[in-house]
Write a protein that binds this DNA or RNA. Structure first.
Lengths: 209, 209
DNA sequence: CCCAGACCATATCGGTCCGATACATCGGCG
DNA sequence: CGCCGATGTATCGGACCGATATGGTCTGGG
């Protein structure tokens, strides 16, 4: 997953580790974060696989200095190929929370068809969770712990909200496909849906910013 | 974290690995899940540390059979002690998403004082994330990717929602402390708090699907 | 009656990722 | 001038996941 994200970012500009991590954190909006303990080994793996190369130190921002010790990486042709493959391989794991966010963060490099496939897969996942929670909350009159119940309630609201959000995105994708290059989200008529709010699942971690 | 959860669950009843995992998943409402690859080694660790012991196979449900091969664990006195200590040690990591959910799932075994400390810590964490996202969304007119932006929007809404949820819980804790044994969530007036805090409390049901 | 398929149950292995930490350099600020 | 905070690379131990292996037991259908 990290490797996928790195490949995606390097496609836009050559970067060094430190910067890569910051950008990634920003891009994912705290949805997921990666530590150096993951990043540096990943970079080495990617170099070994020939998907990226260590480039000379061109400071991309054109700043005056060229710090010693920093290693700037650039994506190779094989890297771009591999990235495209990975998008295409987008399977069930892609709708499982962590991967979903990362895929979404690189959606502009993803064919529309795949985008919809991923969004719908994610929706299915979240709907299942939502239904499970809903039935648990409805079923039991009073056998479960109050705090557990609150956790369920938060989870349910989150799922409902996320489904709604996904419906908006899916509708926008369809509209864009049919209509043309429209970028705005339609008024709403994702319909069929309910209330407020979302929430992610496990993980999440902090985030930069 | 897993060890904490196991200790918490075994405090209610002796269980074997498989059942432990199911209960844990239910209890956390999908908020977090643990795999056998984590669970079994954890159980061995806990046994080695003397916090739990392998008990004879009393089928707790009183079912007729007593499956061969299953290993039922019971918490020891040291285990209970350790669990209490762990609750007390609840530090910053406890408001970081994963741990928060687990702590909350065992809140009924947590002293009210600690409960509030954890809830407020979590609120602080979420508020920071929320504010970060909010400023990112406000600041940039049009420099970031549409999908990234959507991710941010979802994150922001969930943070806002969670802060509100936390405020309800905190208010309930305070009310319970002042008032008495009241279990219901009061109208609301966490006071001193940020912005728009109205909220309808309708019972969802959401009809549909 | 027997076998298939679903669920119960324990266990291990390889791998990803986190958290802490170490160690340098650089730019300011008092 | 000395210290601090950000920049930057790197490693190590450990937690946890996902796939997989290996069996046992229950249920039901032909």
């Amino acid at each position: 997953m990290l490797e996928f994200a790195v490949l995606g970012l390097l496609q836009e500009a050559p970067l060094h580790g430190y910067e890569l991590r910051k950008q990634l954190g920003r891009r994912l909006g705290g949805f997921r974060a990666f530590s150096y303990g993951s990043l540096y080994p990943a970079l080495r793996r990617l170099v070994r696989a020939g998907l990226i190369v260590e480039a000379g130190d061109h400071d991309p921002a054109g700043s005056a200095w060229s710090r010693r010790g920093r290693r700037v990486y650039r994506i190779t042709a094989e890297g771009k190929e591999r990235f495209a493959e990975m998008i295409d391989e987008a399977g069930p794991q892609a709708w499982e929370d962590g991967s979903f966010g990362i895929h979404l963060a690189f959606f502009s490099r993803t064919p529309a068809e795949t985008r919809i496939r991923i969004l719908e897969g994610r929706r299915r996942t979240v709907e299942e969770r939502r239904d499970g929670l809903r039935s648990v909350l409805n079923r039991t009159g009073e056998q479960i712990d109050r705090y557990t119940r609150e956790l369920h309630r938060l989870g349910l609201e989150s799922s409902e909200r996320e489904v709604r959000w996904l419906n908006e995105l899916i509708a926008a994708e369809n509209a864009a496909r049919d209509g043309g290059a429209d970028q705005t989200i339609p008024g709403d008529d994702a319909g069929t849906d309910e209330g407020p709010d979302f929430r992610e699942r496990q993980d999440e971690t902090t985030g930069g910013a």
